[in-house]
Design a protein around this nucleic acid. Structure first.
Length: 293
DNA sequence: AGTGTCGCCTGAATGC
DNA sequence: TGCATTCAGGCGACAC
């Protein structure tokens, strides 16, 4: 049955966790519902996320207006009228559900925060693993606090290009895979898009960061931007689809070239390689040993 | 300061 | 069938 008052923003599969494109998609999906809306009521079902929800969260936000949303790295920033910001991170398993009519809201396991708006809509933050966070800061201070204080540049920013990345990694001995996951070097990348970008660039994930040449770094920055833009585009089309379905679609209708593709044939033309999985600092890395050097 | 490891947490998948 | 084990990983804390 057509169900237009339920919009689901989530990862289709457990291993698809939110990285920059997913967070951007969630933010865009929320925007129309929350922009310039006053919060009439707010339910907090549990405070004990890994980073606890502050005790005054409800009091600080009730009857305040959400002016705008922005994104920084993997965080969504709710800019409130009275100078607060509420900062949301989806962690590993965080999801947001939106109900155009809050009467249609049905509680689910792990619904930690439910925000009711004056329009009659509501949205829900659900996070089974509780690795996410939802906390408060001030509109003038948040940018220089906590995870944002030393956070690296936005990869989709026009000013982020090869020279910046090269400067940041040229003294690093750590594998390029680890460097790209480091939010101090560049913001918003996670395991999936790092694997995909390195694959497209033909760069081996174990390469010490300081061995990347400027041309390789240029290829890498271009591919990082491309892979993120494509994912955001796919997320956007999925969002539109969601409004006419029961939420059975995921963010992406296409798969990944290497991520979770261990043992499959490399998709590069003429390459006879098979995708391998290795573990780097406790995380899976997927790559083609034949065309990544 | 840079680098690596651990713990947090739940649910899906796997093993016996 | 049922119970135990393994695995997934962003981020902060910590050790070296």
């Amino acid at each position: 049955m057509y169900n237009s008052d339920f919009l689901l923003i989530k990862s289709e599969r457990i291993f698809k966790m939110p990285e920059l494109p997913e967070v951007e998609t969630v933010m865009r999906g929320l925007e129309a519902t929350v922009k310039n809306q006053s919060i009439s009521r707010l339910n907090i079902n549990r405070y004990d996320l890994r980073i606890p929800i502050p005790q005054d969260f409800r009091q600080c936000l009730t009857n305040q207006t959400i002016n705008t949303l922005t994104r920084r790295g993997k965080y969504i920033i709710f800019h409130m009228s009275a100078g607060h910001v509420a900062i949301l991170h989806l962690g590993m398993s965080g999801r947001v559900r939106i109900f155009k009519d809050s009467e249609a809201y049905k509680a689910e396991k792990h619904d930690h925060v439910v925000v009711y708006l004056e329009s009659g809509s509501c949205f829900v933050f659900n996070d089974p693993r509780r690795f996410g966070m939802f906390y408060l800061s001030s509109d003038t201070l948040w940018y220089n606090e906590g995870p944002f204080e030393k956070m690296g540049p936005e990869p989709l920013d026009k000013t982020w290009a090869a020279p910046k990345l090269h400067k940041a990694i040229k003294t690093r001995k750590a594998p390029i895979k680890a460097a790209l996951l480091d939010q101090h070097i560049v913001a918003g990348l996670g395991n999936i898009y790092v694997c995909e970008a390195l694959y497209r660039s033909g760069i081996h994930p174990t390469r010490p960061s300081n061995t990347l040449t400027m041309p390789e770094t240029k290829t890498l920055t271009t591919n990082i931007k491309d892979v993120l833009r494509e994912a955001i585009k796919a997320g956007g089309s999925t969002l539109r689809d969601y409004q006419h379905t029961d939420g059975s679609l995921g963010y992406f209708q296409h798969g990944f070239a290497v991520y979770d593709q261990e043992g499959t044939a490399c998709k590069t033309a003429k390459c006879k390689g098979r995708i391998e999985r290795i573990v780097q600092s406790g995380r899976s890395t997927f790559f083609c040993p034949s065309c990544q050097h």
